[in-house]
């Protein structure tokens, strides 16, 4: 490219072509990176979910997705988008332990998505894990960084409902200490669990008649067996 070409006003065609080529190359690069990272990203998400289920349901070593369809829970690997899903947790002998129930609702800044473990036989929440949140760093984000708060969900009665109380004043089995300085976020977590619990309590089968663990395990329903 000569200097004269740089100083002379280039034709519109050249300007359009430059931008079009730049856009094309950029598009190809973006498709490439998207395609090459997608498997890792999906695998990460699936692994995160698995880890979260095992975390909120202590003693669980196998899980399967349960879809609420036509009034009952069915073990299915894939659910339609508008169907509600819970995850059933089973111990290593395949005995049912509890449900991991996802819930979401407004927090202090944005939607909080979480997963909580529920053991129907004891009517207790046995664990809680925040999956997604944009709460204030240093304050609201203690809903997942504050080990004490998270541990508070380790044995929490859901009858009649969970109540967040001022730190240090927990007296009943259905009360949890809120985080000082993050009352709204703490209450949001409790509210999300309560709402999900009300929604699910009528759908879940009576204790003892939970769907059995699908032997082929979630993901490979029946294929080649």
């Amino acid at each position: 490219m000569s200097a004269s070409r740089d100083t002379a006003s280039p034709s519109s065609l050249r300007l359009v072509l430059t931008l079009a080529i730049a856009g094309l190359i950029s598009g190809i690069a973006i498709i490439g990176i998207y395609e090459s990272t997608l498997p890792t990203i999906t695998a990460n998400k699936a692994r995160e979910l698995r880890a979260a289920v095992f975390k909120v349901l202590p003693g669980v070593s196998q899980m399967q997705a349960l879809v609420y369809r036509d009034g009952e829970l069915v073990a299915l690997a894939e659910a339609d988008k508008d169907e509600s899903v819970v995850y059933g947790g089973y111990d290593e002998r395949g005995e049912f332990v509890g449900y991991a129930v996802p819930g979401a609702g407004p927090g202090f800044q944005d939607t909080i998505a979480l997963l909580y473990g529920y053991v129907p036989a004891e009517q207790q929440v046995v664990g809680m894990e925040i999956l997604e949140s944009r709460e204030t760093p240093g304050l609201g984000d203690k809903i997942y960084k504050d080990a004490e708060f998270v541990a508070g969900f380790g044995a929490l009665s859901t009858e009649p409902e969970i109540i967040a109380v001022k730190k240090g004043s927990k007296a009943a089995p259905n009360e949890i200490d809120a985080i000082t300085g993050a009352t709204i976020s703490s209450k949001a977590v409790v509210r999300i669990i309560n709402e999900a619990h009300v929604e699910w309590s009528e759908r879940l089968p009576p204790p003892g008649s939970e769907p059995a663990l699908n032997e082929s395990e979630s993901g490979g329903t029946g294929a080649g067996r």
């Binding site: 931008l19 730049a22 190359i25 950029s26 973006i30 990176i33 890792t40 990203i41």
Partner: peptide, 29 residues
């Protein structure tokens, strides 16, 4: 030398945005 100076800012932004998207997906993965 190939980027005409009338559209240089748009070209720079396209280049930068592409790298940002790459960084975004790489971090996510």
């Amino acid at each position: 030398h190939w980027i005409p100076k009338q559209v240089r800012i748009s070209c720079f932004i396209i280049i930068i945005a592409t790298f940002v998207t790459i960084a975004d997906y790489t971090l996510l993965a």
